[in-house]
């Protein structure tokens, strides 16, 4: 029992960190552009699929981890410049537009990549003992990479010029324009960064789950839950909420069927939406 619990907690933390990356991307785009990106789950899936091809070609997981976010970031650039730019002041319309992008991307992947799930084998096969069970070291590595990416993001937002601009635009867009911040460019790079983060989490999740064209659909909903519970626009809140929710789901699944655990998580989220629409950790 104790070893099962330990594994559930470890899995909860690892999965929570991956979810935090997705939610951070979604939340950054929301905080800045005030749009809900329905295609975010599809970008996560695309990250995993691109990585699968790169790994097939080169045989190296780490190259996949580097290349996939670049490719997906570029696709994010096209989506932002080509589509969202023209309708950014209509939040409801952008939801519908990105929903269309989601459908198209999923289907394109189905046509090229096929419908059957495929696996990316973890580059680190070592397993270490955890009580009387074995735990794959790769997952610890995944968790460490996620943490490193989040620290990198934090430094980027706090210590660089672009990070300062981003925070300025979130605080007061009009004033930012007045001070000469290229708001247009900041929007673009935020969307690219958010897309790249989704791709990173897709690649990191790939050795744990299997790669298939629908893998982003449920993840998108989980990311919504995390963003709302953590507070829309509140990045630290998203990270805490991601780990909290996936721990509750993971440990809860030891005691009740997983679908029941999800229903409770969703019901909890409805209550949060109604009572504290600014999120649990908002002011």
């Amino acid at each position: 029992m104790i070893s099962n619990l330990a594994v559930a907690i470890m899995n909860g933390i690892v999965w929570g960190l991956i979810m935090a990356l997705i939610a951070l991307g979604l939340n950054m785009i929301f905080g800045l552009l005030h749009i809900i990106n329905m295609a975010h789950g599809a970008l996560y899936m695309l990250g995993a699929v691109v990585a699968w091809y790169v790994i097939e070609l080169t045989g190296n997981f780490w190259i996949g981890l580097m290349v996939a976010p670049l490719c997906v970031g570029f696709i994010g650039l096209i989506i932002e410049r080509g589509l969202i730019r023209t309708i950014e002041d209509k939040p409801i319309i952008t939801i519908i537009c990105t929903f269309g992008v989601m459908l198209a991307v999923q289907q394109l992947v189905l046509m090229i990549f096929g419908g059957s799930p495929r696996r990316i084998s973890p580059p680190i096969a070592y397993r270490f003992p955890l009580f009387d069970l074995q735990y794959p070291a790769m997952r610890i590595m995944i968790a460490l990479i996620s943490i490193a990416l989040m620290i990198g993001l934090w430094i980027f937002l706090r210590k660089t010029k672009y990070g300062l601009w981003m925070r300025a635009v979130v605080q007061d867009r009009e004033m930012a324009v007045g001070l000469g911040i290229p708001v247009n460019k900041v929007y673009m790079w935020t969307f690219v960064l958010g897309s790249a983060l989704a791709a990173f989490s897709g690649v990191l999740a790939a050795p744990i789950v299997s790669v298939e064209f629908m893998m982003g659909r449920e993840v998108l909903i989980m990311a919504f839950i995390i963003v709302i519970v953590g507070g829309m626009g509140n990045l630290e809140g998203s990270v805490i909420a991601a780990i909290m929710i996936s721990l509750i789901q993971g440990v809860g699944a030891l005691f009740v069927p997983p679908s029941i655990a999800t229903v409770f998580a969703l019901a909890f989220m409805i209550i949060v939406l109604l009572i504290r629409p600014q999120g649990l950790f908002g002011e």
Binding site: I92, F224, I228, T262, A267, I270, L273, L274
Partner: peptide, 28 residues
């Protein structure tokens, strides 16, 4: 009753959540 208390994006999301709950119950 619950959904119309919210507006904009929050309304969109709460309606999705209710549908997901229905889908999970139907599936289970």
């Amino acid at each position: 009753y619950f959904s119309v208390k919210l507006t904009g994006i929050h309304f969109v999301i709460i309606t999705i959540i209710f549908a997901i709950i229905g889908n999970i119950i139907g599936d289970t």
